Simulated scan of single mutants.
Amino acid sequence: MEKGIESIFKPHLEPKEVYKGGKNIPPSLKKIYKLSSNENPLGPSPKAIQAIKSVLDQIDLYPDQTDIRLREALVKDFGGKLAADQFITGNSGSEVIDMILRAFINEGDEVIYSNPCFLPYSVFSRWYGAKQIDVPLREPDYELDVDGILNAITHRTKIIFLTSPNNPTGTYIPKSVLEDFLERIPKNIVIVLDEVYRHFVDAQDYVMALPYVLKGHNIIGLNSFSKTYGLAGQRIGYCYTTATIANYIRLIHKPFLLPLTSIEAAIGALNDHEFIEETIRTVRIGRAYLAREFEKLQIKYWPSQANFFIIDPPLPEMEFTDKMLDEGIMVRPVSQFGAPGKVRITIGDREANGALVNALQKINPHPKR
């Protein structure tokens, strides 16, 4: 029955949980270490800063109508293995997710994802009326449930989200598992492989989407400039896929989509090889250090291939988060990501990691033996 203006609202947009990003650093007289948002521990790429400064006197003008200059820079970054028309860029990896869903999903179609995972997979798919199918990662190690996903596929399944390394668990999908999965799924399903944290991986059996794009699989590799390149504030991301899929998605790519400063910052960052290498080195050293300290403190954690850890805190998650903030450390409870009771901690620089360990020692001074 018609109820005024409410009759024109889409029923699948009824009020539900929405994605909430990490909090900003609160005002404080003491130093606060923000280890809650997986940002770059070294700050932004110096070449990106230089590139932004070089165009500040041009921000009264419209930016590039297309993203071709950035796509050409990505071609170079990928060693010429892909063509420029195989890349799609957007204002953050999250917007690229939205673009993919907008391109492929009709109301009633199905999207599969595996909690714990990045919340926008489910939140954004709801916007387009998709039926959301959660096939949880297998505990206790948060492994991909390949058989569970295969059993969940129906004729309405359009997109399957995979993440490697996964946010918030830090776990990854081994090459053999991914290849087995790709061989067994129907060919009319699009796989989105979120590989935003790929630069931090040192596992020998890790694999990106790239070789499978080159083989013609319906797979999309999702990436961002927020982590490795230190450009979270510029909101720029991209994906790559087959030319057929990319040119289809490009049909809904808006002109003048990327701000001038974002285009220049991304191109500059791609060329900042020294900064990229130092970022990766800092994260990997910090990751090994924190794993050792978690062991000493007997804090349960999951081995990570990303720039963060998920832990089982010694106190209830919100109490732990508040006590850590009292000690000057911001961390992220991740119940919203499908990991109730767990907390995610970003790997910082040497100073931040040391402060984190000191705070943990104060909160949990006598771990059970």
Score class of each variant (00 low, 15 high):
Thr228Val: 08
Leu360Lys: 08
Asp67Leu: 14
Ile299Cys: 04
Asp272Arg: 08
Gly170Leu: 08
Gly328Thr: 11
Gly341Ala: 14
Gly22Ala: 15
Ile191Met: 06
Phe309Asp: 08
Phe181Gly: 05
Ile263Met: 10
Leu214Arg: 04
Leu178Glu: 02
Ile173Val: 07
Ile159Ala: 00
Phe161Gly: 01
Tyr212Asp: 05
Lys296Asn: 11
Leu315Thr: 00
Ile173Ala: 10
Gly221Arg: 08
Gly354Gln: 05
His12Ala: 07
Arg250Pro: 02
Asp194Tyr: 03
Pro340Arg: 09
Lys296Thr: 09
Leu42Glu: 04
Thr154Gly: 01
Ser125Trp: 12
Gln86Asp: 08
Tyr301Lys: 00
Asp67Trp: 13
Gly354Asn: 13
Asp180Ser: 15
Lys31Arg: 15
Val196Trp: 01
Pro15Ile: 13
Gly129Arg: 11
Pro15His: 15
Leu251Cys: 10
Val196Tyr: 06
Asn218Cys: 10
Ile68Met: 14
Leu13Pro: 00
Tyr229Ser: 10
Thr157Arg: 00
Ile191Cys: 04
Thr282Cys: 10
Lys31Pro: 02
Leu325Phe: 09
Glu110Leu: 02
Asn40Val: 03
Gln298Phe: 03
Arg284Tyr: 05
Pro303Ser: 06
Arg344Ile: 02
Leu356Ser: 01
Ile363His: 08
Ser54Gln: 08
Arg250Cys: 05
Val201Thr: 03
Leu70Asp: 04
Asp141Gly: 10
Ile32Ala: 01
Pro44His: 14
Val177Met: 09
Ala103Gly: 05
Asn166Pro: 00
His199Thr: 03
Glu295Pro: 00
Ala48Thr: 01
Ile220Asn: 07
Asp349Gln: 07
Phe181Asp: 02
Leu56Met: 14
Ile105Ala: 05
Val334Glu: 12
Gln86Met: 13
Tyr121Thr: 09
Leu56His: 06
Cys117Met: 12
Gln132Lys: 15
Ala352Gly: 11
Ala306Lys: 06
Ile310Cys: 09
Glu14Cys: 10
Trp127Thr: 08
Ile105Glu: 01
Ile173Arg: 10
Ile267Glu: 10
Ala265Met: 07
Glu277Ser: 13
Phe275Thr: 00
Asp134Gly: 09
Gln58Ser: 15
Pro340Tyr: 07
Lys53Pro: 00
Arg332Asp: 04
Asn166Ala: 10
Ser164Pro: 00
Met330Lys: 03
Glu39Lys: 15
Ile311Thr: 07
Ser114Arg: 03
Lys47Glu: 13
Gly80Pro: 06
His155Asp: 15
Lys31Leu: 12
Ser54Arg: 14
Glu95Met: 15
Glu351Trp: 02
Ser164Ile: 05
Lys296Ser: 12
Leu101Arg: 02
Lys323Pro: 00
Glu274Leu: 14
Ile220Gln: 08
Tyr212Asn: 05
Tyr212Val: 07
Asp85Met: 13
Gly129Asn: 13
Thr169Asp: 10
Asn247Trp: 07
Leu13His: 08
Asn40Ala: 06
Phe181Trp: 09
Leu178Ala: 04
Thr261Arg: 12
Gly348Thr: 02
Asn271His: 14
Thr261Asn: 12
Lys300Asn: 06
Val146Ala: 13
Asn188Arg: 14
Ala359Trp: 03
Phe225His: 04
Glu72Ala: 13
Asp57Ile: 11
Tyr229Ile: 05
Pro116Ser: 12
Cys117Gln: 10
Met318Arg: 14
Leu101Phe: 15
Ile345Phe: 09
Leu214Glu: 04
Lys76Thr: 12
Phe78Trp: 14
Glu319Val: 14
Ser262Lys: 06
Lys175Trp: 02
Ile236Gly: 03
Lys76Gly: 06
Phe124Ala: 11
Asp180Ile: 04
Asp322Pro: 02
Gly354Phe: 04
Pro367Leu: 11
